[in-house]
């Protein structure tokens, strides 16, 4: 599904290297988690994969089902099946959540040469999916993320994911700022989307999210590289001992 080879990335405005050769493969249907100390490059990787400005790729490749991600515009990557759940979802006053969702869903369908969803079908689908995430009609009507609590914003991200049905989902610290119940709700939303044809890359600081979203593989990222990969027990090790031992091992 997602294949990253030797990915090297600099910050565009400064002479600073963030990713220093990332190798990572997420096969179809698997859930991989990335943990790592602050500043290790986790969020940068998610932004670079989804096409945010401000970064320069100096080496390596990233492909989604064999297609070069890095050569595409952000909207093309989305249409190709990539989805990033933002750590800080953006507020957009004056644009209704429904309008936004429908525009996005139909833009992707159009880009893939599929028929656009009718207003009726869209409404039916969004209502059903919103209900599972306990997003009420009022929240759907409001402007995108405006006046949403931290938990509501994250649930809204998952709703978008559910509506857009991507192949590769990257979750950037989706658990940050969530209480236990909200985390459970978000995790249930993610688990409902797990399928053979869909993969997940879950970026998190805490093992707790991984209790709810069980990963197949856990990677540890440090200083712009993946320094260790293992099973779910690796996350537990981090939870108990921190990164010190792992970093020492790597050194």
């Amino acid at each position: 599904m997602l294949e990253i080879k030797g990915l090297k990335v600099d910050l565009e405005d400064e002479d600073k290297s963030i990713l220093k050769g990332v190798d990572l493969t997420v096969p179809a249907g698997e859930v991989h988690a990335i943990m790592g100390p602050n500043g290790s490059g986790k969020s940068t990787m998610s932004y670079v994969l989804s096409g945010k400005d401000g970064y320069t790729v100096t080496g390596g490749t990233a492909t989604l089902n064999g297609v070069d991600l890095l050569a595409m515009e952000p909207e093309e990557r989305a249409a190709a099946g990539l989805f990033l759940a933002f750590q800080y979802p953006v507020e957009i006053p004056g644009v209704g959540n429904m309008t936004f969702l429908r525009t996005a869903v139909n833009a992707q369908r159009k880009a893939r040469g599929e028929e656009e969803l009718s207003a009726g079908d869209f409404l039916k689908e969004v209502r059903a999916k919103a209900k599972d995430l306990k997003i009420d009609a009022e929240m759907l009507k409001r402007p995108v993320n405006v006046g949403f609590s931290g938990g509501e914003k994250k649930r809204n991200e998952i709703l978008q994911m559910a509506m857009l049905e991507p192949k590769m989902c990257i979750l950037d610290e989706t658990d940050s700022g969530l209480d236990v119940d909200a985390m459970k709700l978000v995790a249930d939303g993610v688990n409902a989307l797990r399928s053979e044809g869909r993969s997940f890359l879950v970026i998190t600081h805490y093992q707790r999210l991984l209790d709810h979203i069980k990963p197949d593989v856990v990677h540890i990222m440090s200083n712009g590289r993946i320094i260790k990969s293992g099973g779910p027990e690796l996350a537990l090790e981090v939870e108990h001992n921190g990164y010190t031992d792992l970093l020492a091992e790597d050194a």
Partner: peptide
């Protein structure tokens, strides 16, 4: 970027954000 990352083309996203303004 948020809008484009959801598959909304650059032009449409600019229109939406202008209407938002």
């Amino acid at each position: 970027f948020y809008l484009r990352s959801r598959g909304v083309p650059h032009k449409t996203a600019t229109t939406l954000l202008t209407l938002s303004f």
